[in-house]
């Protein structure tokens, strides 16, 4: 996993809690913690951090990942200047993830292996059914990141799991 994700997770932890909490999570997870945006680190380091956060806060791991994801979107988007402005809305931004956003990410981080999202548009409203495809199985993080797209535009975005599937979500947009 790219170091930029760890940097953003650190920023989220520091903003939600504080610097000391980040130190404690690293210590508890037994990690060295010197992450640089340009480096690559094992997925298990992220999971070890979330496990440590779970031990510290007693919040379930999926909820923690959703919270971190939701606060990470804006910070990740800041690292791709123009991406949010170009899309203009949360819905458009989400639809651009595979074809525009992730190719841009690959320019900055050639070794990145971003997930793929499959979209189906609702017939009854403007919503989307999103299928998350990744070998990482970080579906809870994906839900949080999708929800965070609303923060980019100050519009509410609801994301719910579709019953019977761990990797399919229903995304609804409401007029701000």
């Amino acid at each position: 996993m790219k170091g930029v994700i760890f940097n953003v997770v650190e920023e989220v932890v520091v903003s939600l809690w504080d610097d000391d909490t980040w130190d404690d999570l690293l210590d508890d997870a037994g990690l060295d913690g010197s992450y640089t945006a340009l480096g690559n680190y094992g997925d298990e380091e992220l999971l070890a951090l979330v496990d440590a956060a779970h031990r510290l806060t007693e919040i379930p791991v999926p909820s923690l990942l959703e919270t971190i994801g939701e606060h990470a979107t804006v910070r990740l988007a800041e690292r791709l200047p123009g991406a949010a402005e170009d899309a203009g809305s949360a819905r458009e931004f989400i639809l651009r993830v595979n074809d525009i956003i992730h190719p841009e990410v690959k320019k900055l981080y050639p070794q990145a292996i971003p997930p793929v999202f499959e979209f189906t548009e609702h017939t009854d409203d403007d919503g989307l059914v999103v299928e998350y495809r990744s070998r990482r199985g970080l579906d809870a993080l994906a839900i949080g990141l999708l929800r965070g797209c609303g923060h980019l535009y100050g519009e509410p975005v609801d994301v719910d799991r579709v019953a019977g599937s761990t990797s399919t979500f229903r995304v609804s947009f409401k007029d701000a």
Partner: peptide
Amino acid sequence: ARLERRLQRERKARADAEAIA
């Protein structure tokens, strides 16, 4: 001691980033 560890971490991250760059 905590702040020193944090400093070490940042120094190492910087050195790693420079080596990668």
